[in-house]
């Protein structure tokens, strides 16, 4: 069934048991919404030198948006900001692939499960919500750093 390509078991697992959910200390906080469906996320990024020390979030929304935030937390925490940005760009590229991309499992790990979502234009924004929030919060955290 086609639907199973979107709702991979791994996505449903993250949805039911989200990783890293809840707000903790951060260097920057952003609030992003998806105005078409009302999905919302408040996300904080804490940097420790060159490393993404923590990504914490409170969110409400569909399974895709919730699972995506959970996967983001798994993938990005502990990476250098540069590596994390590369993962973010790879995920963005996968989501913009209109069902054509498979994603590099070396880079994206669990996030390749979202490849099926890219076939559904209305749901791509759900998958990207937390990733765009992370990008925004990280840019803010970097900008307020003393030189």
């Amino acid at each position: 069934m086609k639907l199973d390509s979107m709702y991979q078991e791994i996505i449903l697992d993250h949805y039911r048991n989200p990783h890293g959910k809840g707000l903790r200390d951060g260097d920057a906080e952003v609030h992003h919404v998806n105005p078409t469906c009302g999905d919302e996320i408040t996300l904080r990024v804490r940097l420790d030198g060159p490393v993404v020390a923590d990504v914490s979030y409170e969110s409400q929304g569909c399974s895709i948006s919730q699972a995506s935030a959970s996967v983001l937390n798994d993938l990005l925490v502990g990476k250098s900001v540069g590596d994390a940005q590369q993962v973010q760009e790879a995920f963005l590229e996968l989501m913009q692939s209109k069902g054509q991309g498979e994603g590099d499992e070396e880079v994206l790990e669990d996030a390749v499960a979202f490849a099926g979502v890219s076939k559904y234009p209305a749901r791509v924004k759900c998958a990207l919500l937390s990733w765009m929030a992370w990008k925004d919060a990280t840019a803010q955290a970097l900008a307020q750093r003393p030189e």
Binding site: M1, K2, L3, C37, S63, I64, Y120, R123, C126
Partner: peptide
Amino acid sequence: HPHDVGQVLDEQGIAVRV
């Protein structure tokens, strides 16, 4: 979530708004 409800209904040919 309504988005998920609507998606699974769509797979059955049922068009609702979420």
